[in-house]
Nucleic acid binder design. Structure first.
Lengths: 102, 102
DNA sequence: GCTATTGTTCGAGTATATTCGAACTATCGA
DNA sequence: TCGATAGTTCGAATATACTCGAACAATAGC
């Protein structure tokens, strides 16, 4: 594996971003990345099978939410925050600030 | 039919709102409601079958996005804007302001 | 080169969504 | 009451998503 494809942020549709964020596991990953910054896939798996997580990271990448950098044997993920804030002002903040029922 | 059930806004999870908005047809409906205010189902169907639209309105209602009022033979829909803005500050605005790729 | 580690890809199984015709319900007006 | 209108509900077909084991690829360290 020799580096991931990442979409240009201007090519991602808001529907795809919303869909990516509508899954609880992926929303968890995003929250985690906000708190901790860069993190490997293993750090973010929450005990789930690697193949499942690989699927979720792919969705997060293809929707422009996450950037994955290969560092040796680990794949390090970051939120594409500045780009997303430019492309969809206020969206990420609003989602991240949404409290669970209450 | 004697009035629809609408969830309490505090009981809706952000994941459900995001999922509801991630469908292009439903996002269209929401945009339409923002521009035009209250509208009947027929006004919003875009030529699609009524049974399909009925499904989408149900999703929009169950996620707390839309309120449906029965007025004679028509079912009039409105966005639950103030409630949503209180529950998820900035979310609806951010989604509505998202420009399609450009 | 061998081995352990990290993560991908493939394929199949299951679950959830979407679509839409057909039959139905409710209301309005004549 | 009859007919037209606006939507719902049901059921089935199809599509899309999620889950996860098994096999694979790439790197690091010895």
């Amino acid at each position: 594996m020799r580096a991931y494809p990442h979409p240009n942020i201007d090519d991602v549709a808001v529907e795809h971003v919303l869909h990516a964020l509508s899954d609880p596991i992926r929303l968890d990953i995003v929250h985690h990345l906000v708190r901790e910054g860069e993190a490997s896939c293993a750090t973010l798996d929450g005990g789930r099978p690697k193949s499942s997580m690989s699927h979720h990271f792919r969705v997060l990448r293809s929707s422009g939410l996450v950037h994955t950098r290969i560092a040796g044997v680990q794949h390090m993920n970051t939120l594409r925050r500045e780009e997303l804030d430019r492309r969809f002002p206020g969206l990420l903040d609003a989602v991240l600030n949404a409290k669970s029922q209450g």
